[in-house]
Simulated scan of single mutants.
Amino acid sequence: MPPNPSPLTAPTAEDFRAWHRVQSAALAHDRPGEPVLSATALQAKLTTTGNRSRLLLWLVRNANEEPVATATLRLFNEPGRSHLAEVRMTVHPAYRRLGTGSRLLSTVTEAAAEAGCRSVVTEVMAGTPHEGFLATRDFQPVLRLTWQRLALDDVPDRIHKLPDVPHPGYRLTSWEGVVPDALAESFADARRGMDDMPTGAVDFGEVRWDVDAVREAAEVIARRGERLLTVAAVDALDGSVAGYTELVIPAEGAGTAQQYDTAVLPAHRGHGLGLWVKAEMLRRVREEFPQLSAVQTDNADDNRHMLALNTALGFRPLRRTVEYQLTLGRR
């Protein structure tokens, strides 16, 4: 009989090492060749959150105290998203099809219901048995995503010239970490450029950005030991942020960087600002982080504009995933 999952309320260093073993084994099996987070980086991600959300953790061990599965449940504290929970669950390849995943998923979704959530979302690789596993448990596919990867050695030559191409009425600026005070208000406003991001049928809710929220998001990344870089296009007339792109550099300054948000406010679209800021970001990281090998990003399949923009920059398809959603109380 599968072990009873119980929440990890006071994780130890050994718990995090065990968690890392499960994650590493699953990644090697499911996505061979992709980089594995270090144990230190993984622990930082599991233990560092801001005021807008919190994480509940489960680590399942068998009768021999071997780690066999992990799960996280992200609960949102902000009013516009308190109805939604995000689940990330991993079962060690050697212990699959033994019932552990079923019991763990049931435990985690019950915890979401007890927290007052109405929807649970999770993400799995497209075309794998994980899709059938969720479908038989009343989860519905709500968003399809394409992940892309850019090898920094393969950036097309023409992209290196784009930052020097003038865009009348705009100028480029950049910063690391927390946004400078002079741009804080307009940068928070520029987050509205993500409001029309395709989210499929996900019960996404409303993300409200203000200066405090923008600063806190950057501070959380810093507490994880990572580095947040931002490049923005600024309106030359009033000095406000018209569009921006963000990249998170691993703590080691090497390996694969993760693309975060890229957005242009509706009033400033049609001027090539998205390509401009992303090209400048690539120029900067190639110069300042020579040990970085690649940048990774994901976009909804419906976001054809951003997928095409990334392809123009040299990104290539890496994998496809599907977000599934469970409406609590249906079963």
Rank of each mutant, 00 (worst) to 15 (best):
G50I: 03
Q23E: 15
D15Q: 07
Q296Y: 05
H130D: 13
A115F: 11
Y260M: 12
I159P: 10
G116S: 03
R208E: 10
C117G: 03
E123G: 05
V165Q: 14
G193M: 10
S38H: 07
L150P: 11
P7T: 06
E323V: 15
L145R: 01
P5A: 12
A13G: 08
G270H: 09
F139G: 01
L84Q: 11
V214H: 01
A190W: 06
V231F: 10
R330H: 13
M125L: 15
R81H: 10
A94P: 12
H268R: 05
Q291M: 11
R103Q: 13
V248S: 09
H130M: 14
A217K: 10
P141E: 10
L59M: 00
D157S: 11
G270R: 04
Q296N: 01
R97C: 10
A28F: 03
D196Y: 05
Y95G: 01
A294N: 12
T146I: 06
L46C: 13
R320F: 01
D30G: 03
P2F: 00
A300D: 10
E252P: 10
E185P: 00
E131V: 00
Y170I: 05
D153Y: 03
R103V: 10
G80A: 04
L183Q: 02
L162I: 15
P67I: 09
D212F: 08
A113Q: 13
G177N: 03
E78Q: 12
S53A: 15
A201T: 09
R284S: 13
T128M: 08
V220N: 08
D203W: 11
G116T: 00
V285Y: 04
S53D: 14
V120F: 00
L318N: 11
D153E: 14
P168N: 01
Q325H: 05
E110G: 11
R316N: 06
L273C: 07
A112C: 00
V277M: 03
V155G: 00
S102T: 15
R81C: 04
R81K: 13
F76M: 07
N77P: 09
F187S: 06
D298T: 08
M194L: 15
M89P: 00
L37T: 08
P5C: 03
P163E: 04
V322S: 02
G314Q: 04
G50A: 08
L8M: 06
Q148L: 11
D164E: 15
D30W: 03
R330F: 01
S6R: 12
W175E: 09
R215L: 03
G200P: 04
V142E: 02
R215D: 02
L152T: 09
Y170D: 05
A308F: 01
R52Q: 14
A242T: 04
E185D: 12
A233C: 04
P141S: 02
A236W: 01
V277K: 07
V121N: 07
T107I: 02
W19T: 04
R286V: 12
D138G: 05
L292E: 08
M194R: 13
A135G: 01
A112S: 12
T327W: 12
L104K: 05
F204I: 08
Y170C: 05
R224W: 10
Y324C: 01
L228Q: 13
E65G: 12
F204C: 00
V295T: 10
G132L: 06
R52A: 14
R31F: 04
L42M: 14
T136Q: 14
S38E: 12
S174G: 09
